[in-house]
Design a protein around this nucleic acid. Structure first.
Lengths: 230, 230
DNA sequence: CGCTAGATTGAAACGAGTCAATTACGGTGG
DNA sequence: CCACCGTAATTGACTCGTTTCAATCTAGCG
């Protein structure tokens, strides 16, 4: 039973599904089949998709918007793990391990998200090895960046972590002036800092002539070599 | 060209290969084929299997011994990422991403390790989806524990990290008295601490009556609830 | 356009790192 | 098998980066 395109102004579901990296390369009729098993929903900003302890049996695929994945440590501290965007999926962990979630997922902005039941996913993974392989690629790259983040947290001080983060962002943008993709408090959480420390470091970088801060959380890198040097 | 079992006193290669989790479940003739493509080598203690920047095109599978995976941060700090043992594999990252290694792998003790060329691995992943799926499971569970470790490093203080680590070890042992699986300096690195701090915390725990330290890096948990409470 | 969450700034406390010196293992070779 | 040597572990004193707490300011969503 195919859903009708629930969201106005959008391409049909199978086209959306075909744009998702892990399903890219499947034949049109295969996409159509998957599209028929998928439930597309619109989520408002700051909506919790699932929380720790829950057992939400869906693989979720983001068509638009951003989702943040974070943990709450025993001491109540919120640790941002990663931010997912268009084409990314979440909910894979509990599919594979069968264990309930141990983290939280909430939207950072209005988002359109597909949900595919774990039973269906299992079916596709068995029938389309290319999908399994794509997931493997994705997890591998997530693992790599999480490991990098881990060693940065343990080994580098606040200045280095922040500089590395800004330079990484700069790589993803054509110009040296770009907005932070997320709120500063989330940047702080991601970098393992308090918002206060982040704020101080940013003004410190600005005073040192390495960056400039503009309205709407926009950062301009003025002295890239200095940031690299640090 | 099949290798002869190079290591004395061991089962034939295909039996060893069959014991490896990611190849478990393959038919005998499939195992035999893989065994024929594999090179088994004995490595001495503290041997470097590969280092950052290298491009070692092998998936390595551990038959015996332990291997540590670590990174060297820009500030020269060594960060232990994980310790792999019998049945675990390494060298998957660069296979999938094609990028050169960004970390180091060295043996912690004498180890027997199989190497499978990336070209052969690619072949098997295409032909045996169950192998791909097993790898997916493994990476997923590594990602999960790395994320846990990440949030602990950022959010928990030294006491909590150490207590959690000891309790985790205790879960893997029948009794409350067990040896640390690795040298204390490696434990320190794993927990994001200096050896000095780890040493101090352990004596502090001992003074508080929560643990007892015995020779040969053996720890005895005396007051488990207290460790949980912390 | 008002309200609330986010951001900034200051002052003070503290956890963990660093440096240095000593002791204790444990692996290697005789 | 034992002795030696080098690495690991421990201990102490001191420093410093980051957190914490508190107050104020700002901005963006509803």
């Amino acid at each position: 039973m195919a859903h009708k395109s629930a969201v106005h102004g959008h391409a049909p579901l199978e086209v959306l599904v075909g744009r998702v990296p892990i399903f890219a390369g499947l034949a049109p009729e295969e996409l159509q089949e998957i599209a028929g098993r998928v439930r597309l929903r619109r989520h408002v900003r700051n909506e919790q998709l699932y929380g720790a302890g829950e057992n939400n049996p869906f693989l979720m695929i983001i068509h638009s918007g951003q989702v943040k994945i974070f943990r709450i440590t025993e001491s109540g501290h919120e640790q941002l793990i990663r931010v997912l965007g268009e084409g990314d999926f979440l909910g894979d962990m509990s599919f594979i391990s069968g264990a309930p979630k141990d983290h939280f997922a909430t939207t950072l902005e209005t988002a359109e998200i597909c949900a595919l039941h774990h039973d269906d996913l299992r079916d596709y993974l068995l029938r389309y090895p290319s999908v399994t392989y794509k997931m493997l690629e994705t997890l591998s790259s997530r693992l790599e960046s999480t490991e990098r983040q881990l060693s940065a947290l343990a080994g580098e001080d606040a200045d280095h972590r922040l500089a590395a983060y800004l330079l990484e962002l700069a790589d993803e943008h054509p110009t040296a002036k770009f907005p932070l993709p997320i709120a500063k408090k989330d940047v702080a959480s991601f970098l393992g800092l308090t918002p206060e420390t982040l704020s101080r470091k940013l003004t410190q970088f600005e005073d040192a002539g390495m960056i400039r801060q503009h309205p709407r959380r926009t950062i301009e890198l003025v002295d890239v070599p200095a940031l690299h040097r640090l």
